[in-house]
Design a protein around this nucleic acid. Structure first.
Lengths: 234, 234
DNA sequence: GTCTATATACGGATAGAC
DNA sequence: GTCTATCCGTATATAGAC
């Protein structure tokens, strides 16, 4: 699958989730026509990400959001009960899309080496296609209310565990050396996060997402194949 | 130097910088006695970091800060002209401490391998001793005004260049394989940042700063010593 | 469904007493 | 040096017209 097909798939998945969100909140939303609701929800989400990533979610006023979406303040409140509510919808939409696509791509592979490559590449492609969402979630996580923050932390640990499990499987297959897989998984995650957190830097240096993926994989694989290393952190 | 000596050195350095800040802003501050000013500036900085790291700098009200420091709103404004001003002082204080200590420790070494180890360890120790400041700077960077944001970006690139230069030197010394040093430097930075951004995670897993440092060094050194690798990103 | 107008509250900043 | 009291702008959220 090439990247533009991937982008399309993400876009479709995002709309699907918007439709599901609309279905779930049908009682509370004052808007009743699905087509209108989904279209405006997407606009609202995009605008929220754009403004928040410039000045922060707290600093984004409803007037800002009104201006950016072209909807009046009154209209906005037909879609959500308040800022908190908007935040929750936006978060759950993104999480749902990511989980769906990530698992789909990893489960298509069986051997550890292929799984590792699929996981790294898919995660990078996802964060490329949904960069504003990833950036937002990372930066705003600490400002979320308790329940939302817990879900964000769970998401972090979930991704990390995916990588740790793959590395463990590789050791069982005899293709990877024994290492502290969880610690390696956490630094892999750190490197993946750098891609969407410092996108300006990589863009400026003309490093493509595929080049970055190849580099990360070489880096990790070198560590897993070098038997000279003793992993001191047990 | 053990870690508790290091902590003490950082603390002293922070006070020194507070004194310098006071000297620079003597005209505008309504407080005139150095001892009082330095003591209260430290309290104000600590409180700002504490509150901001919980809910964000924007969301921190002057009333919050007043409560946390025990100083009244009026008293606070004797130390700075407004929130923007406070932010600038806090940022410049941290940057000054970091630059001073980092260069001191790296310049004490001559060979690349030793420099790399000193740089990684010192950076991790610094971010351990000043975790709230590092966390704050990372999270609030995008919300800063133009001039401040530029300085934050410059700081990011400055640290990265330190690492890239060391790796380059290692290649010249013939102890490191040729690689894309700048790209490696940026992922090293990402791993160092993970330490202070996800401190809760490493604390929970009982991984010490020295264990983390050892791990990062093994990881990087494995990549630089494995001749099997072809660095595709040129 | 969407708009305009407004209620209510909270934040930054200052004045002036002590 | 520090405090209390207050001004004034701006934010969220809603009411009610179209």
């Amino acid at each position: 699958m090439n990247y533009s097909d991937f982008q399309l798939m993400v876009k479709v998945s995002q709309q699907d989730i918007c439709r599901e969100i609309f279905a779930e909140n049908r009682k509370t939303m004052r808007v009743k026509k699905e087509e209108t609701a989904v279209r405006n929800l997407e606009r609202i989400f995009d605008a929220t990400l754009k403004i928040s990533n410039e000045k922060g979610f707290q600093a984004m006023s409803m007037r800002d959001l009104s201006r950016e979406t072209g909807l009046s303040m009154g209209a906005l409140y037909a879609y959500f009960a308040g800022k908190e509510d908007l935040l929750e919808m936006l978060q759950s939409q993104g999480r749902a899309v990511i989980q769906r696509i990530l698992e789909e791509h990893i489960n298509a592979e069986s051997r550890a080496v292929s799984k590792l490559r699929a996981a790294v590449r898919t995660h990078l492609h996802l964060s490329e296609a949904m960069q504003p969402w990833f950036y937002f979630s990372y930066m705003e996580a600490k400002n979320l209310a308790r329940a939302q923050r817990d879900k964000a932390v769970a998401g972090e640990l979930y991704t990390e565990k995916i990588f740790a499990d793959i590395l463990e499987q590789g050791q069982e297959e005899g293709v990877f050396e024994p290492r502290d897989h969880l610690l390696v998984a956490s630094v892999i995650k750190a490197m993946l996060q750098d891609w969407y957190l410092k996108r300006w830097k990589y863009a400026k240096r003309s490093i493509s997402v595929d080049q970055y993926a190849a580099f990360i994989l070489e880096f990790v694989e070198a560590f897993y194949l070098s038997s000279a290393n003793s992993n001191t952190v047990a």
